[in-house]
Structures are given as structure tokens and as C-alpha cells.
């Protein structure tokens, strides 16, 4: 038993950290957020590094690595709050890999993995309620969970409305009616793997907010002392660490289980998603309090992580819905459904 990243996994994470730190400085994030756009050139570089297809099989044009490798990459993309179609594309590829027919795989996976096409995902319930789709309407192909499994549709064939959310670092849309070709494989496993990927990004979001808050608490002085020497502030920061480390443990475990112990995945994914989405919000909100008034301004960068946590944290349903699924899987009651269609 060894619960640590391998040397190769650590290297992937370090490379991603450096890549995002160099190319997605806060000014760049702000520029892209203000124009609500992505930088195609930078996404091309990510694709060259193999990231969208990092967990896609070699036969489908991917890197053939595991969900752990994708998770650490997305953790770093969340740490930078990088605006890019990586989440939508890698996420869609996870579901197509798990559930797509041979034709669906052959048509989309090589193109998603190479960055030639981008992907999106979300859900529409039988009564027509849409979640926020990640990366619609900008993507080429979308995974649509409809309560019975998952459909695959070229984005052009989906009737959708762009949703201008508070998270300007990513495009979102709602879908008017589920459409597309049914994927015959294991859509539940695809959705669980996707939930882990989102949780990984959220863990990075929380980590960044904590790092920002801790740095500020060391520097900022009031009453002639650094504010971080006041326990109301330092214990707040310790609580952030608890939240971030709990999500990280659950995310790494779930991403390991996805490939190595699939029978544990449903519970592992539900726990990771519940904790990571809640923890990212808790941590970014708590960081705002540490910053005081400056943290509430449009000029301050914290807003990007705070808003990302709020929106990304509900892409596959709210923390409440994930917790309800955890309760059901823990043996409580008749096993109410996940609540969320996605």
C-alpha cells in the first residue's frame, strides 16, 4: 500500500503547475474573463502535451494514463483558474471512453484527444430541467445525461441557450431538450469519473484561495501585528487546510479507485464531489473574509476562484445532492436517486 503520487505522476503535476503559472497569470485570466473567451493557441499547447486525452486509451488516440494523471492536471488548471476548454473536452472524453460505441469512440475520441475538437457535458431531466452545461455552446460535441444514461450529440444539433454565469472564465449554457445518439456502454461509470475530474479542479481552486489568504495574512498588518497572528484569522486558515486536504484525499482515492477498484467508484466519486464542491466554496468565501474590503473589489483576483468554485461546484448537481447519494450508498433508506439528472 502506498498512498502518494508516483514520481511520474508528480512530474505531470509539476509540469502542469509550471505551465499554468507561466501562461495563465492572473492578468491573463482577467483578460480572457473580460472577453469571455479562450486562447486557442494556449489550448493547442495543452493538447500537444496530451492533456485532453491523458486518460484516453492509446487505441482511441490518447495517452493511456489513468484518472489520477488527469486529476492532478485538472487540479493545477483549477489552481490557475485557467480559462480553457480542457475540463469540457477531457470530461466528455471520459464519458465517451466509458460509454461510447465503437463508432462514437472512433468519431470523437481521437479528435478530442488531439485538441482538434472540443467537448462539453451536462444533463437534462425528463421534465426538461437543464443543468449548466460546461463549455456549451463553444464545443463541437456534447455528452448529455438524460436520466436513462448518456447521449452524444454534435453541439450544432443541440438547442441551447448560452448562460452568462458569474464564472466568466468558462462558457456555460442550458439545453432546451435532450438530444443525440444513445451511448450503449456504462454511462454511470462515465459520470462518476467525470465527477472525480470536476472535484480535482475544485481542489485546486480551494488550494489557491488558501494560498492567497495565507500569504496575505502573513503580510497585512493591523494594530501593529500581522493579521495572521490573530487566531480568528489563523484558525480560519487552519480550517481551510482541513477542507482542502479532505478534498484532496478523497479525490486522489476516487481517481485511483476508478481504474484500480471500480466497485468502490460510485461511493468514492459521490464523496469526492460532495466534499470538494463544498470545500472549494467554503475556502474561497473564507479567503474573502481574510482579505477584508479589498477582497470584495472587482480589481482583486480572488473573485475568479470564488466564482469558479460556485459554478463548477454544481455542474453535476449540488453538494446536497451528492451527499444524498452518499447516504443512500451508505445504506440509509430505500436509496433515493442522485437527485441530479447528471
Amino acid at each position: 500500500m502506498n498512498f502518494d503520487l508516483s514520481d511520474e505522476q508528480r512530474e505531470i503535476k509539476d509540469t502542469a503547475r509550471q505551465f499554468f503559472a507561466a501562461r495563465f497569470k492572473p492578468e491573463k485570466v482577467r483578460d480572457l474573463a473580460e472577453s469571455r473567451s479562450y486562447d486557442d493557441g494556449l489550448y493547442g499547447q495543452m493538447a500537444e502535451l496530451g492533456w485532453p486525452g491523458i486518460a484516453v486509451a492509446e487505441a482511441d488516440g490518447g495517452q493511456d494514463l489513468g484518472l489520477v494523471e488527469l486529476a492532478v492536471t485538472l487540479e493545477e488548471s483549477g489552481y490557475a483558474c485557467a480559462p480553457s476548454p480542457l475540463m469540457g473536452s477531457a470530461g466528455a472524453a471520459l464519458v465517451i471512453s466509458a460509454a461510447g460505441s465503437d463508432e462514437q469512440r472512433a468519431e470523437w475520441l481521437p479528435r478530442l484527444a488531439s485538441g482538434e475538437a472540443t467537448g462539453a457535458f451536462g444533463g437534462v431531466s425528463p421534465d426538461g430541467q437543464s443543468t449548466l452545461f460546461c463549455d456549451l455552446p463553444t464545443a463541437d460535441v456534447a455528452v448529455v445525461f438524460d436520466g436513462d444514461g448518456a447521449l452524444l450529440a454534435p453541439a450544432s444539433e443541440l438547442d441551447c441557450e448560452a448562460a452568462e454565469t458569474i464564472d466568466a472564465t468558462r462558457s456555460y449554457a442550458t439545453v432546451v431538450a435532450a438530444a443525440g445518439e444513445r451511448m450503449p456502454g456504462d454511462a454511470d461509470a462515465g459520470r462518476d469519473r467525470l465527477a472525480v475530474a470536476i472535484s480535482a479542479e475544485l481542489t485546486g481552486v480551494g488550494q489557491r484561495a488558501m494560498d492567497m489568504a495565507v500569504e496575505y495574512a502573513r503580510e497585512r498588518k493591523q494594530f501593529d501585528r500581522p493579521i495572521g497572528s490573530y487566531q480568528a484569522v489563523s484558525h480560519r486558515c487552519a480550517t481551510m487546510l482541513l477542507a482542502v486536504e479532505e478534498s484532496r484525499s478523497l479525490v486522489y482515492y476516487a481517481s485511483w479507485a476508478a481504474d484500480a477498484e471500480p466497485e468502490s467508484l460510485p461511493m468514492a466519486a459521490a464523496m469526492a464531489c460532495a466534499r470538494a464542491s463544498e470545500a472549494a466554496w467554503e475556502t474561497t468565501a473564507s479567503a474573502l473574509q481574510v482579505f477584508g474590503g479589498i477582497g470584495f473589489t472587482w480589481e482583486h483576483d480572488l473573485q475568479f476562484w470564488l466564482k469558479r468554485s460556485r459554478v463548477a461546484g454544481r455542474m453535476l448537481g449540488s453538494p446536497r445532492e451528492h451527499r444524498d447519494r452518499v447516504a443512500a450508498l451508505a445504506g440509509l433508506g430505500a436509496g433515493a436517486p442522485a437527485g441530479a439528472v447528471a
Binding site: F3, E246, S249, L250, M271, R323, V326, A330
Partner: peptide, 20 residues
Amino acid sequence: RQRVAEFQIGIEAMRLGALR
């Protein structure tokens, strides 16, 4: 159900943290 789930998640996070 919400609270039981929180405990399940917290205990599991603690177990995994201890293993890390």
C-alpha cells in the same frame, strides 16, 4: 441523510488522510 453523509465523508477523508 445530509448529516450522516457528512460523517461518512469526513471519516473516509480522515482514514485516507491518515494513509497519506
